[in-house]
């Protein structure tokens, strides 16, 4: 027993030292960068010689929600690629693990590090007032990505770059009616996202607005599939067992749930895309492949590749141009041949 303890202590010490060393070496490079950046931020030091005499690096702090889906990941990657490859910029990335309080902490940290701009992909619309005021007081412009915030004073953020979830829901419904025919009797089951998530709320709202305007279309069941494949499949299985042949269409709040539902429909013995019309939102690559295979009918794009637009916005802001309050991301609705043509170019 004692022997073990001794050896374990040695082991621990070695581990601890090892970690500290690796942390130091790993951070050394970053630390220097951080130094340069913060110094530059205060504009007291002369630009470093290797900066070719041009202006200082622009430090961008990016607070991301997390990595809960492939879509989110594509967004992170787009930002990292855009700013990582550009010597003009330095990116500070912070992952909030789905928690708003972590995002607020991250923004506070960015402020204390005196970054030049903050990009925020808010996990929810509300609750940003206090911390955004702190950012404004520190004269740091804040750019919102993919979802906006509810604040009493719109000057708290510079611009919002992203899409409109309500519009996505509306487009999903409109395209469905276009392709199926507005006078056909259609019973729809809906696979919602995580209860309370704003993407789920708004995509439901937009879809319902259009469907309610047509008496032939009815949402007969609506259940949360938590934005995941596994839950989407499980819920769809239950729907098929209880309503079976009565279902003509599925509307999923994201592609992952739709892909799960497609599996459930196949295992039930029906043909997704033919027997049951499937429409979803996001436009990830596997969804395009499913359209090619005839299993998915429509995907409404929600573009995660916001890096280039964000970069342009920051540069414009630095030059003193006035920015639009809402910079809409480039988005489209894909189905049929259009989707198949677009497939080779899909990045995520």
């Amino acid at each position: 027993m004692f022997k073990f303890k001794k050896s374990s202590f040695v082991m621990t010490t070695v581990l601890a030292v090892g970690l500290l060393l690796s942390a130091c070496s790993g951070n050394a490079a970053n630390n220097n960068g951080g130094n340069a950046a913060t110094n530059a931020g205060t504009e007291t030091t002369a630009p470093a010689p290797e900066d070719k005499g041009s202006d200082k690096k622009i430090v961008l702090g990016f607070s991301q929600i997390g990595a809960e889906s492939g879509w989110r990941d594509a967004e992170t990657q787009s930002i990292k690629d855009t700013f990582g490859s550009d010597a003009q910029f330095e990116l500070k990335f912070s992952d909030a693990q789905q928690k708003q309080e972590n995002q607020i902490k991250a923004i506070r940290t960015f402020i204390s590090q005196k970054v030049d701009a903050i990009a925020l992909a808010p996990v929810v619309e509300s609750g940003w007032e206090t911390v955004l005021e702190e950012a404004k007081a520190a004269n740091i412009p804040v750019f919102l990505l993919d979802r906006t915030v509810k604040v009493s004073d719109e000057s708290l953020y510079t611009s919002f770059i992203g899409s409109d979830f309500v519009l996505e829901g509306q487009n999903a419904a409109k395209t469905m009616m276009e392709l199926l025919g507005a006078d056909k009797q259609v019973n729809i089951v809906e696979l919602q996202g995580t209860v309370g998530a704003s993407a789920a709320n708004d995509r439901q709202k937009g879809f319902k607005e259009i469907v309610d305007g047509n008496p032939n279309y009815k949402i007969i069941k609506s259940q949360s599939g938590d934005f995941t494949r596994a839950k989407g499949k499980e819920v769809m299985e239950a729907f098929l067992k209880s309503d079976g042949k009565n279902i003509q269409a599925v509307y999923a709040h994201n592609d992952d749930m739709a892909l799960g539902a497609i599996q459930a429909i196949e295992e039930y013995g029906l043909k997704p895309g033919t027997d049951i019309f499937v429409v979803s939102v996001d436009g990830i690559k596997p969804a395009f492949e499913a359209i090619r295979d005839g299993k998915l009918n429509v995907t409404v794009e929600c573009n995660p590749l916001l890096g280039p637009q964000l970069k342009q916005a920051i540069l414009d802001f630095k030059e003193g141009k006035t920015l639009e309050k809402w910079i809409k991301s480039d988005e489209d609705v894909y189905f049929g041949q259009k989707a198949i043509d677009a497939l080779p170019n899909r990045l995520y």
Binding site: D73, K92, Q97, T109
Partner: peptide, 21 residues
């Protein structure tokens, strides 16, 4: 958490691993 945020280059998964470690 503050250390991880100051680090500023960790990807989502490395954040989890670093916090846990």
């Amino acid at each position: 958490q503050t250390i991880v945020m100051y680090q500023g280059t960790l990807s989502s998964w490395w954040t989890k691993i670093a916090v846990g470690f």
